[in-house]
Structure formats: structure tokens, C-alpha cells
Amino acid sequence: MGKTAIQTKDLGKRYGSFWALQNCNISVPEGSVSALVGPNGAGKSTLLKLLTGLSTPSSGESLVLGKAPRQHEDFLSDVGYLAQEIPLYKNLDTAEHVKMGRHLNKRFDEAFMRKRLDGLAIPLDRAVGKLSGGQRAQVALALALAKKPKLLLLDEPVAALDPLARHDFLSSLAQAVAEGGLTVVMSSHLLADLERVSDHAIVLAAGQTQLCDDIEVVLNEHKLLVGPREHGNDLGEGVTVIHATHTVKQSTLLVRMNKGAKPSPHWQKHEPNIEEIILAYMGQANEGGKK
């Protein structure tokens, strides 16, 4: 494992008496593309804002690229951020956004941004407010990438896009990641999309981190066990149930297994996909919330 790009310790954010995020402990390795998933209201946006320094934590702390997030040039120039609503200056045209990027950033690669926009056939002379949602998202992504950040934080960037625009956006992102040197954390509740581009998963539910690991590791550690219901308590050493569904005779368990653990032989072992695993964690948090 290489260095960590993001490390948080008991990070929390409270608005009034409501904790939007609590006891968040995540660790994101440098160079990874992390999927930050969780239901609406789980605190994904809050977490990303804390990591950019746009808001300050109520508790705990975080290290982003080795520094505490702050409103300072040195920190800001290394972090790219794309807010959920994809804010841009509606009255400015695309070319003026390029110019803005150049004026507001020391290390701005104007040629790169122009080339990107050119490749996507986005008109430079049209007010950004008149572009399609997909084009706007591409302009915002190009702007964030041309800043040459070491870390890119994207808050539900594809949520508002149609399937084609979503596909194009993620291709653009994948291409940028392939060029190297970039760590990405991208939130979404669209699990399928993230699966395509991410190699690391963070599950946030009810404001707390449930899972934070490489996708490979996550896939290896989790199994779907199907077996007769009466063996529900006989799982074996080092096996933890994340989520269980039962029919009258049969139980389906999504379990996490420690290294070397073997489930009892009553159980039929299946390989869950990442989406099933994430849903299981989110379901567990929901049930926890209902209790």
C-alpha cells in the first residue's frame, strides 16, 4: 500500500443539534478512485465539504494530502472539487470559464482544458447557462482537472445526467485517472456507475463509515451464504453477518469473513457483487436507525 491521500479521525459535523456526519473514520490511499456511497442524507456532501475546507468540522479531524483542510492557496491548489449542483457562472461563456481558471489558479493548464472541451465539441462562445446539463458537467470537470489537482472530490457528479451524458462523463474521468497522479473520491447513490470506475469503496450510512476498503479486498472478504434457517447461529469462526434475509426455511446472509475464516459446511457460498455488498451495509444502517 502506498501513502494515504485522506485520513479522517472521528470526523463529525453538527448543524444545530443534528449531526450530519458523526464518527467518520476513513482512509483513502493515494492514486485510488473511491466510491463514496450511501443513501440520501448519509452525510456524503458534508464529508466532501469538510475535506475541501468549505466547512469546518464540529468534531474530530482530517488530513488531506498531509494537511488539515484550510482556506489557503497551498492547500486549495492541490484539491479539485465539483459540488453537487455543478455551480458555474451562468452568464459567462465557456471560454471565459477557461480564462477564470487561469486567473484564479497558479498551476492552471489552459491548453489542456481547451483541448478537452474541443474534444467534447463544447461551444466556447456560448453562455454556460445555455449548455446542456451534460456539457455543463463536462465544463466543470475540465475546469477541476485543468487545475492539476492531486485530489479530486466529486459530489454526485452524474446524478443529474442522462445515461449517455453519464457515460461520457465517467469516460472523461476514467481517461483523466489513467493519465495518472490523481486520487479521486466520488460520491453517488448510483452504485452501478461507480463500480465501473472505482477501485475502493467507502460506505456512509446514518453519518457513520461502515466500510472503507479496496474493492478487491471488499469482494474477497464478503460472501453470500445461503442455507437452512435453523443453522442461523452456526456460522463459524471469524464470520460476521452484515445483513440477513429470511424466508420460512432458508436464510440468505451477507457476511464479512476475517482472513482464513471458513463458514460452517451447512452454508452454500456465493460471490456477491459490490452493489449487493454496499446495499447490505446500507440496509444494516437503516435497520439500526429503526431500532
Binding site: 489557503h72 492557496e73 486549495l76 479539485g80 459540488a83 458555474l88 466543470a140 487545475k147
Partner: peptide, 17 residues
């Protein structure tokens, strides 16, 4: 109102400047 505070404040210019 337009949410562009989040855009402006995540460029490389400090908020104070």
C-alpha cells in the same frame, strides 16, 4: 444563491484574498 461560492472558494485563491 447560485452556489458559485463553492466554485470560487475551491479555486487556488484563498477566501480572504
Amino acid at each position: 444563491e447560485e452556489g458559485t461560492d463553492k466554485l470560487a472558494w475551491t479555486q487556488s485563491v484563498s477566501r480572504r484574498k
